[in-house]
Nucleic acid binder design. Sequence first.
RNA 1: GCAGGGGUAGCAAAGCUUGGUCAAACGCGCCAGGUUCAGGGCCUGGUCCCUUAGGGGUUCGUGAGUUCAAAUCUCACCCCCUGCACCA
Length: 959
Amino acid sequence: MLNYKDMEEKWQKQWSEAKVFESEPNEKNGILVTAPFPYVNTPLHIGHLRTYATTDLYSRYMRMKGFNVLFPFAFHASGTPILAIAKRLMNNDKELIDDFRSFKISDEDIAKMRNDPLFIANYFIKNVSDGMHKAGLGIDWRRRFVSIDPIFGKMVTWQFGKLKELGYLEKGMHPVGWCTNDQSAVGQHDTKHDVHPEIKTMIVVEFKDAGSDAYFACATYRPETIYAVTNIFVGKEIQYVIARMNNKRYYISKETAQILSNQASVKIEGEVSADELLKKSAVNPITKETVPVLPGFFVKPDVGTGIVMSVPSHAPFDYAALERLKTSGYPIPKIEYKRIIDIEPLNGNKIGRSLGDVIAGEAKPLHPEIPALAYLEILNSDPNAIDDMLEFATKLAYREESHWGVMLVGKYSGMKEPEAREKIKSDLIESNDGFDIFVIGNDEPVYCRCGTKVIVKVVDQWFINYGNKKWKKEVNDYLPNMKIYPKKLSATFSAASDWLDLRAAERAQGLGTKFPFDERHIIESLSDSTIYPTLYTYIHILYSNGIKPEQLIPEFFDYVLLGKGNVSSVSQSTKIDTTILNKCRESVQYWYKNTSRHSAPDLIYNHYVMYIYNHVALFPKEFWPRQIVVNGMVNYEGEKMSKSLGNIVPLSEGIEKYGSDPLRFVEIAGGDLDTETEFSPTGINSIVSKNQYLFDMVLKMEELDGSELTHIDYWLYSRLNSKIKNATESLDGFMLRGAYTDIYYNSITELKWYMDRGGNNGLAVREFIEKIALMLGPIMPHFAEELWNSIGNNTLVAKERWPTTDETYINKPVEKTEEIIKDTIDDINNTVALTSRMPQNSNKRIKEIKVIVSDDWKSDAYNALAEKRNISEVMKMQWNAADKEKVSKFLSQLSKKIRTIEKTEFVKCDSLFDGFSHAKAYLSKRLGSSVAIEKEQSSGSSRAERAMPNKPSIDVVWS
RNA sequence: GCAGGGGUAGCAAAGCUUGGUCAAACGCGCCAGGUUCAGGGCCUGGUCCCUUAGGGGUUCGUGAGUUCAAAUCUCACCCCCUGCACCA
């Protein structure tokens, strides 16, 4: 049995000794193949392998195709996640500790990780690089680096200087999720339960206090409903203040005043109680109506402004609040519920178009004239419903009306609601009757891990303006020139490019490069990782020449990356020898002209777009990204690998247990590039046993002593060459699964068929296996070497050339003949099964099975008919091989298919007869009876004339 | 909500660009039989329905349409996945 561990170690050692993967520029075409460096705050599992194995596959394939390939690797440690891990360990985060333990990280190491980010980084760098080594990835390790290395920092500093020069680095106000306790921005991973804080804008509509110069600041998402406002709601228990903003005085809750002070200047001039507000009335800025102020049970002190404009006709909460006031006997004036938005009629039913998710039974809206009530009725509910139900009705109303609503009143009457909303909003802002505020838009409040409620703060900070029109156009113009695999992702890349906009470029804490224009901050950790593949091309030259980070001043990068400046003056200012500078420069030029970058799809919307933008901004066109390859994820027996399911297999453990090669194979060949593939132990077993079969075949091969090439040998050669041709085309288009189905699974089936059919030529089998071994090189590199070696080759597959097709061996009729033989066996089995049940055949045995191949005139007639599609036309032709009656009978059989038949290359009668004759012994063995092969013309069988082109007739003779 | 992708037989996954050769590849699972066979492995056959001569019927999210012909083209609808930014 093959021992994968020994085998893998053996060949990894040989590759390393032969320096197969240590590439330097030469006369060949070069290609730089990279995968984004992994973030080293967590161990790798077998799912991560797919991207790296695919990258390795491509680089090995391209090397075999004659390219000079460089596949380097590095590690990402800059940014906040490592700090976060250190912090969580400090706090004895049980979940994290359990997680680490499941990866067999010792308690001792976990203890060391506490509050020591660098230890964490180094620990996982070792973990990842061990995994990469064990997997046998063909990496040039001389070029490794970490994103917190000083050299890396020098490059990033240079990059940011350039971005600023180009005007792409800007300073400005920007809203972020914010924790007032931590005094820092809050992203998804900083919150409890990893909730993403959604930042939305609300408009504050100003309703002037009828009796003073102050305004009721009503926050709303739906300013268009202003035409139906009946009153203002305040919370009875809420403490209000008078706050000065934009040089006006506003009534606003004390809490929201505090929150809004993070967004604008808010000066509190005094307090005012809810009771006082309730005595006032307010003026609608658009309709100029004066409306009362009433208590709303649902008004919250920390949402929006703590003051709500009431639209009972369209807002279920508002409707419910008024109804409840009525029932409680609160004195309210007469109120008119005015429907101002209509839903386009559908099937006569005016509301409830998209109620698919509502389990409403037979509920009917009884009050379509009051949508807020109608939506409650649809839900079998009423104004006394619990808040959740009101919330649901609100969402329903919002969705329906936003989708199909049309304004019935006002300046924008007749306009679609969402459009009208925007117009009214800008009108209000324009006329100084409203302004925007930012709020956290999640349904539930979002809490920072520290327990504080997350708010929105507008911060003044540096960001990269990917929204720059010129820049975006340049990128979008270039995108079609990039090769993207799978091809259908091109649309996604365009969408991602369009979507990319302002991107904060600095963070208050974390590891990494200091922000050059504000040294208290560091560069955000995706922004620092966009052009680092350039570093791979020359960093080993810096290492081997002892170049110090301090020498890497901007002039260095200008020269090496952009070719700017004069080498001797750069040498003078950097104190780096001109030969070294030139070597670096040449290396960049050599490798960076042709690149291929590989990753999973989750990087498209962040790393990839930024990668493309930065290259386009900084480099000459010849260095822009050439090719991007995106591979899907790996599932474990149908389920996502996740901590909660407990189905994560650590990479090292997986390799030990299953072998690197079988793992690579199932992960890559299990599905097309972009689909998720399935990992399962049974899948692995299947590969292991198939490999064993191939390996054992080498021993069997030695015993084959046939010297003459027979029909089945020609078949094997033909299949082999067709296979090489097809597989090469598939691989060139990144159809990895298709390629390896043919190279691997089909080859094994074919070898078995060859042996079954009595194939006996050792040389033919040798050549077949040899080529298969070569083609397996990129996907199962260790096994490929082992197989290659076992045949008696002393070279390394990793350094061999990819096999080429010898077209002269491709013989389609021979391949087709074997297919016909297979089909005929199936047909015979069916026939025998059926006829044996016939009464006249009971107590009888099969005497002989006749296989009768059709005459060539049938093929000719078939094709003639396919061409002319007219029987009498075909009959007019010369038919000397058969009498007209037969031709006519044959054609009439085809007549009902006359439109659908296509011209076909049929196997000639003689070759098919020949093929079957050679298979005679095999057939009678398979069928357990004597077999006769006959030609239609000379057969005496009554069934002879049933023979069709490519489909011999069968006559089972009973006796 | 917006954007991108997708719905194919027990699972999983090709096919869809270039309509017919598709009851639909490869693989897994399952069933039956075989194998000097414990199990496993391996081999053969079967795995939508019907069928006493290799045949027929109904299928590729739903519904319409184009066509001599649709898994493949068009439209509408339903459902699923992913992303929506300061985060690797």
